[in-house]
Protein backbone atom coordinates (compact mmCIF):
# COMPACT_ATOMS: atom_id res chain seq x y z
CA UNK A 1 0.00 0.00 0.00
CA UNK A 2 2.93 2.31 0.76
CA UNK A 3 4.20 1.66 -2.77
CA UNK A 4 0.81 2.63 -4.16
CA UNK A 5 0.77 5.97 -2.33
CA UNK A 6 4.42 6.56 -3.25
CA UNK A 7 3.57 6.04 -6.91
CA UNK A 8 0.57 8.36 -6.71
CA UNK A 9 2.65 11.09 -5.05
CA UNK A 10 5.58 10.65 -7.44
CA UNK A 11 3.11 10.73 -10.35
CA UNK A 12 1.62 13.99 -9.10
CA UNK A 13 5.12 15.44 -8.64
CA UNK A 14 6.25 14.59 -12.16
CA UNK A 15 2.81 15.57 -13.48
CA UNK A 16 3.45 19.11 -12.23
CA UNK A 17 6.25 19.69 -14.72
CA UNK A 18 4.11 18.11 -17.47
CA UNK A 19 1.30 20.45 -16.40
CA UNK A 20 3.48 23.53 -16.86
CA UNK A 21 4.50 22.39 -20.34
CA UNK A 22 0.89 21.51 -21.16
CA UNK A 23 -0.30 24.93 -19.98
CA UNK A 24 2.23 26.60 -22.28
CA UNK A 25 1.03 24.54 -25.23
CA UNK A 26 -2.65 25.20 -24.57
CA UNK A 27 -2.07 28.95 -24.28
CA UNK A 28 -0.56 28.97 -27.75
CA UNK A 29 -3.09 26.57 -29.18
CA UNK A 30 -5.90 28.83 -28.05
CA UNK A 31 -4.16 31.88 -29.50
CA UNK A 32 -2.76 30.51 -32.76
CA UNK A 33 -4.60 27.19 -33.18
CA UNK A 34 -1.34 25.34 -33.59
CA UNK A 35 0.18 22.55 -31.49
CA UNK A 36 3.44 24.25 -30.61
CA UNK A 37 6.33 21.81 -31.01
CA UNK A 38 8.89 24.50 -30.20
CA UNK A 39 7.51 24.71 -26.63
CA UNK A 40 10.34 22.60 -25.21
CA UNK A 41 13.10 24.53 -26.93
CA UNK A 42 11.49 27.86 -25.96
CA UNK A 43 12.33 26.69 -22.44
CA UNK A 44 15.65 25.07 -23.32
CA UNK A 45 17.40 28.17 -24.62
CA UNK A 46 16.55 30.28 -21.55
CA UNK A 47 17.70 27.39 -19.31
CA UNK A 48 21.12 27.46 -20.96
CA UNK A 49 21.14 31.26 -20.71
CA UNK A 50 20.52 30.84 -16.96
CA UNK A 51 23.36 28.33 -16.78
CA UNK A 52 25.65 30.80 -18.55
CA UNK A 53 24.65 33.68 -16.27
CA UNK A 54 25.25 31.58 -13.17
CA UNK A 55 28.38 29.69 -14.20
CA UNK A 56 30.22 32.05 -16.53
CA UNK A 57 29.16 35.44 -15.19
CA UNK A 58 28.74 34.39 -11.57
CA UNK A 59 25.44 36.22 -11.13
CA UNK A 60 23.42 35.35 -8.01
CA UNK A 61 20.22 33.31 -8.40
CA UNK A 62 17.95 36.26 -7.60
CA UNK A 63 19.40 38.13 -10.58
CA UNK A 64 20.03 35.26 -13.02
CA UNK A 65 16.61 33.59 -12.75
CA UNK A 66 14.51 36.77 -13.22
CA UNK A 67 16.72 37.77 -16.16
CA UNK A 68 16.15 34.32 -17.64
CA UNK A 69 12.39 34.63 -17.27
CA UNK A 70 12.47 38.04 -18.97
CA UNK A 71 14.55 36.54 -21.76
CA UNK A 72 12.01 33.71 -22.15
CA UNK A 73 9.17 36.24 -22.36
CA UNK A 74 10.93 38.15 -25.12
CA UNK A 75 11.93 34.96 -26.91
CA UNK A 76 8.28 33.87 -27.16
CA UNK A 77 7.22 37.33 -28.37
CA UNK A 78 10.07 37.40 -30.87
CA UNK A 79 9.24 33.99 -32.36
CA UNK A 80 5.62 34.99 -32.89
CA UNK A 81 6.53 38.39 -34.32
CA UNK A 82 9.48 37.36 -36.47
CA UNK A 83 8.39 33.94 -37.70
CA UNK A 84 4.75 32.98 -37.14
CA UNK A 85 3.32 36.35 -38.13
CA UNK A 86 5.36 36.38 -41.34
CA UNK A 87 3.74 33.19 -42.62
CA UNK A 88 1.32 34.16 -45.39
CA UNK A 89 -2.14 32.68 -44.90
CA UNK A 90 -0.76 29.46 -43.48
CA UNK A 91 -2.88 26.38 -42.90
CA UNK A 92 -2.52 24.32 -39.69
CA UNK A 93 -0.05 21.92 -41.29
CA UNK A 94 2.11 24.85 -42.40
CA UNK A 95 2.10 26.29 -38.88
CA UNK A 96 3.02 22.93 -37.34
CA UNK A 97 5.93 22.61 -39.75
CA UNK A 98 7.06 26.13 -38.85
CA UNK A 99 7.10 25.22 -35.14
CA UNK A 100 9.03 22.00 -35.87
CA UNK A 101 11.53 24.02 -37.91
CA UNK A 102 11.95 26.52 -35.06
CA UNK A 103 12.40 23.60 -32.65
CA UNK A 104 15.27 22.25 -34.75
CA UNK A 105 16.83 25.69 -35.10
CA UNK A 106 16.81 26.41 -31.37
CA UNK A 107 18.02 22.91 -30.46
CA UNK A 108 20.82 23.17 -33.01
CA UNK A 109 21.76 26.59 -31.70
CA UNK A 110 21.92 25.37 -28.08
CA UNK A 111 24.01 22.30 -29.06
CA UNK A 112 26.37 24.46 -31.11
CA UNK A 113 26.73 27.29 -28.62
CA UNK A 114 26.86 25.36 -25.37
CA UNK A 115 28.09 21.93 -26.45
CA UNK A 116 26.53 18.52 -25.95
CA UNK A 117 27.89 17.59 -22.52
CA UNK A 118 25.50 17.14 -19.64
CA UNK A 119 25.85 19.71 -16.86
CA UNK A 120 24.68 20.37 -13.35
CA UNK A 121 22.75 23.60 -13.02
CA UNK A 122 23.63 25.52 -9.87
CA UNK A 123 20.36 25.63 -7.96
CA UNK A 124 19.37 27.31 -4.69
CA UNK A 125 17.99 24.12 -3.14
CA UNK A 126 19.47 20.64 -3.07
CA UNK A 127 17.92 18.34 -5.63
CA UNK A 128 18.79 15.31 -3.52
CA UNK A 129 17.06 16.21 -0.25
CA UNK A 130 13.61 14.88 0.45
CA UNK A 131 10.64 15.30 2.71
CA UNK A 132 9.43 12.09 4.35
CA UNK A 133 5.75 11.68 5.21
CA UNK A 134 5.40 8.37 6.99
CA UNK A 135 7.24 6.01 4.67
CA UNK A 136 6.58 8.11 1.60
CA UNK A 137 9.28 10.28 0.07
CA UNK A 138 9.00 13.41 -1.96
CA UNK A 139 12.14 15.19 -3.04
CA UNK A 140 12.41 18.89 -2.27
CA UNK A 141 12.70 19.71 -5.97
CA UNK A 142 9.49 17.77 -6.67
CA UNK A 143 7.77 19.58 -3.82
CA UNK A 144 9.00 22.92 -5.20
CA UNK A 145 7.76 21.98 -8.69
CA UNK A 146 4.35 21.08 -7.28
CA UNK A 147 4.05 24.35 -5.35
CA UNK A 148 5.33 26.49 -8.24
CA UNK A 149 2.95 24.78 -10.68
CA UNK A 150 -0.01 25.49 -8.37
CA UNK A 151 1.04 29.13 -7.94
CA UNK A 152 1.39 29.61 -11.72
CA UNK A 153 -2.01 28.06 -12.31
CA UNK A 154 -3.54 30.42 -9.77
CA UNK A 155 -1.77 33.44 -11.32
CA UNK A 156 -2.96 32.44 -14.80
CA UNK A 157 -6.51 32.00 -13.50
CA UNK A 158 -6.48 35.45 -11.91
CA UNK A 159 -4.77 36.95 -14.96
CA UNK A 160 -7.39 35.71 -17.40
CA UNK A 161 -10.23 36.54 -15.07
CA UNK A 162 -9.35 40.01 -13.84
CA UNK A 163 -6.62 41.67 -15.93
CA UNK A 164 -7.47 43.76 -18.98
CA UNK A 165 -4.91 42.03 -21.16
CA UNK A 166 -6.08 38.63 -19.91
CA UNK A 167 -9.66 39.40 -20.91
CA UNK A 168 -8.40 40.69 -24.27
CA UNK A 169 -6.57 37.41 -24.76
CA UNK A 170 -9.70 35.41 -24.02
CA UNK A 171 -11.68 37.60 -26.41
CA UNK A 172 -9.08 37.16 -29.15
CA UNK A 173 -9.04 33.43 -28.60
CA UNK A 174 -12.83 33.19 -28.80
CA UNK A 175 -13.44 35.40 -31.81
CA UNK A 176 -10.53 37.26 -33.33
CA UNK A 177 -12.59 39.32 -35.78
CA UNK A 178 -15.01 40.51 -33.13
CA UNK A 179 -12.13 41.28 -30.78
CA UNK A 180 -10.40 43.35 -33.49
CA UNK A 181 -13.65 45.22 -34.14
CA UNK A 182 -13.83 46.02 -30.43
CA UNK A 183 -10.42 47.73 -30.72
CA UNK A 184 -8.25 44.93 -29.40
CA UNK A 185 -4.89 44.77 -31.14
CA UNK A 186 -5.12 41.05 -31.82
CA UNK A 187 -1.61 40.68 -33.28
CA UNK A 188 -0.13 42.18 -30.15
CA UNK A 189 -2.31 40.01 -27.95
CA UNK A 190 -1.18 36.89 -29.78
CA UNK A 191 2.45 37.95 -29.43
CA UNK A 192 2.04 38.44 -25.69
CA UNK A 193 0.37 35.02 -25.44
CA UNK A 194 3.47 33.45 -27.00
CA UNK A 195 5.61 35.37 -24.53
CA UNK A 196 3.59 34.15 -21.54
CA UNK A 197 3.62 30.59 -22.85
CA UNK A 198 7.39 30.73 -23.21
CA UNK A 199 7.66 32.12 -19.68
CA UNK A 200 5.57 29.28 -18.22
CA UNK A 201 7.62 26.69 -20.14
CA UNK A 202 10.82 28.32 -18.92
CA UNK A 203 9.74 27.87 -15.29
CA UNK A 204 9.27 24.14 -15.98
CA UNK A 205 12.65 24.04 -17.74
CA UNK A 206 14.45 25.69 -14.84
CA UNK A 207 12.92 23.24 -12.37
CA UNK A 208 13.79 20.25 -14.56
CA UNK A 209 17.32 21.51 -15.16
CA UNK A 210 18.04 21.29 -11.44
CA UNK A 211 18.33 17.51 -11.86
CA UNK A 212 20.30 17.45 -15.11
CA UNK A 213 20.90 20.03 -17.81
CA UNK A 214 21.44 18.78 -21.35
CA UNK A 215 20.32 19.80 -24.84
CA UNK A 216 17.70 17.04 -25.13
CA UNK A 217 16.23 17.50 -21.65
CA UNK A 218 12.98 19.17 -22.78
CA UNK A 219 11.87 16.69 -25.44
CA UNK A 220 10.27 14.12 -23.13
CA UNK A 221 8.53 16.66 -20.83
CA UNK A 222 7.23 18.51 -23.89
CA UNK A 223 5.72 15.32 -25.34
CA UNK A 224 4.22 14.39 -21.98
CA UNK A 225 2.86 17.91 -21.54
CA UNK A 226 1.36 17.68 -25.02
CA UNK A 227 -0.14 14.30 -24.13
CA UNK A 228 -1.62 15.80 -20.96
CA UNK A 229 -3.04 18.74 -22.91
CA UNK A 230 -4.64 16.44 -25.49
CA UNK A 231 -6.11 14.25 -22.75
CA UNK A 232 -7.52 17.25 -20.89
CA UNK A 233 -8.53 19.14 -24.00
CA UNK A 234 -6.34 21.45 -26.05
CA UNK A 235 -8.65 24.39 -25.45
CA UNK A 236 -8.96 24.08 -21.69
CA UNK A 237 -6.31 25.37 -19.29
CA UNK A 238 -7.63 23.40 -16.27
CA UNK A 239 -8.05 20.43 -18.61
CA UNK A 240 -4.37 20.55 -19.58
CA UNK A 241 -3.40 20.58 -15.91
CA UNK A 242 -5.63 17.64 -14.97
CA UNK A 243 -4.60 15.77 -18.09
CA UNK A 244 -0.93 16.19 -17.18
CA UNK A 245 -1.54 14.90 -13.66
CA UNK A 246 -3.45 11.94 -15.08
CA UNK A 247 -0.53 11.15 -17.39
CA UNK A 248 1.99 11.43 -14.53
CA UNK A 249 0.02 9.21 -12.15
CA UNK A 250 -0.98 6.58 -14.73
CA UNK A 251 2.61 6.40 -15.96
CA UNK A 252 3.85 5.64 -12.45
CA UNK A 253 1.14 3.10 -11.67
CA UNK A 254 1.71 1.38 -15.02
CA UNK A 255 5.48 1.32 -14.43
CA UNK A 256 5.02 -0.04 -10.92
CA UNK A 257 2.35 -2.68 -11.52
CA UNK A 258 2.34 -3.57 -15.22
CA UNK A 259 5.56 -2.93 -17.14
CA UNK A 260 8.34 -0.50 -16.45
CA UNK A 261 9.65 -1.11 -19.97
CA UNK A 262 6.58 0.49 -21.53
CA UNK A 263 6.07 3.15 -18.86
CA UNK A 264 7.13 5.99 -21.11
CA UNK A 265 4.77 5.09 -23.95
CA UNK A 266 1.66 4.66 -21.83
CA UNK A 267 0.94 8.41 -22.14
CA UNK A 268 0.41 7.98 -25.85
CA UNK A 269 -1.85 4.99 -25.34
CA UNK A 270 -3.95 7.24 -23.09
CA UNK A 271 -4.13 9.84 -25.87
CA UNK A 272 -5.46 7.26 -28.34
CA UNK A 273 -7.99 6.01 -25.82
CA UNK A 274 -9.26 9.49 -24.92
CA UNK A 275 -9.42 10.61 -28.54
CA UNK A 276 -11.53 7.56 -29.38
CA UNK A 277 -13.95 8.13 -26.51
CA UNK A 278 -14.01 11.94 -26.29
CA UNK A 279 -12.14 13.58 -29.20
CA UNK A 280 -12.14 17.08 -27.73
CA UNK A 281 -10.48 15.86 -24.54
CA UNK A 282 -11.87 15.13 -21.11
CA UNK A 283 -12.39 18.71 -19.97
CA UNK A 284 -12.95 20.76 -23.12
CA UNK A 285 -16.35 21.52 -24.56
CA UNK A 286 -17.14 19.63 -27.72
CA UNK A 287 -18.66 22.01 -30.24
CA UNK A 288 -20.76 20.57 -33.02
CA UNK A 289 -21.26 22.82 -35.98
CA UNK A 290 -24.91 22.85 -37.04
CA UNK A 291 -25.68 23.42 -40.67
Amino acid sequence: MIDFFQMILSGIAVGSSYALMGLGMVLIYKASEVPNFVQGEMALLPVFIAYMLLSSYGLPYYVAFPLTLIFALFLGCFLEFAVLRRAKEPNILGLIIITIGMEMLLLGFVSWKFGADQRAMPFPISTYDSIIIGDIYISTIDMLTLVVALIIMLILFLFFRYSKIGVAMKATQQNETAAALMGIKTHRVRMITWGISSLVGCVAGLLLSAVLTEPYMMWDPMLKGFAGAVVGGMTSLPGAVFGAYIVGVVEHLFGGYVSIEFKSVVAFAIIVLVLCIKPSGLFARHYVKKV
Binding site: D3, S10, L208, D220, E251, G256, I260, S264
Partner: peptide, 16 residues
Protein backbone atom coordinates in the same frame (compact mmCIF):
# COMPACT_ATOMS: atom_id res chain seq x y z
CA UNK B 1 15.11 -2.90 -14.59
CA UNK B 2 15.14 -1.79 -18.25
CA UNK B 3 15.52 1.92 -18.98
CA UNK B 4 14.56 3.47 -22.29
CA UNK B 5 16.84 6.15 -23.71
CA UNK B 6 14.07 8.78 -23.51
CA UNK B 7 13.14 8.06 -19.85
CA UNK B 8 13.77 11.01 -17.56
CA UNK B 9 11.66 10.20 -14.51
CA UNK B 10 13.27 7.24 -12.74
CA UNK B 11 11.40 7.12 -9.44
CA UNK B 12 9.52 3.90 -10.29
CA UNK B 13 12.84 2.30 -11.19
CA UNK B 14 14.36 3.21 -7.84
CA UNK B 15 11.25 1.94 -6.05
CA UNK B 16 11.76 -1.45 -7.66
Amino acid sequence: VPINVADTDLKPHIMK
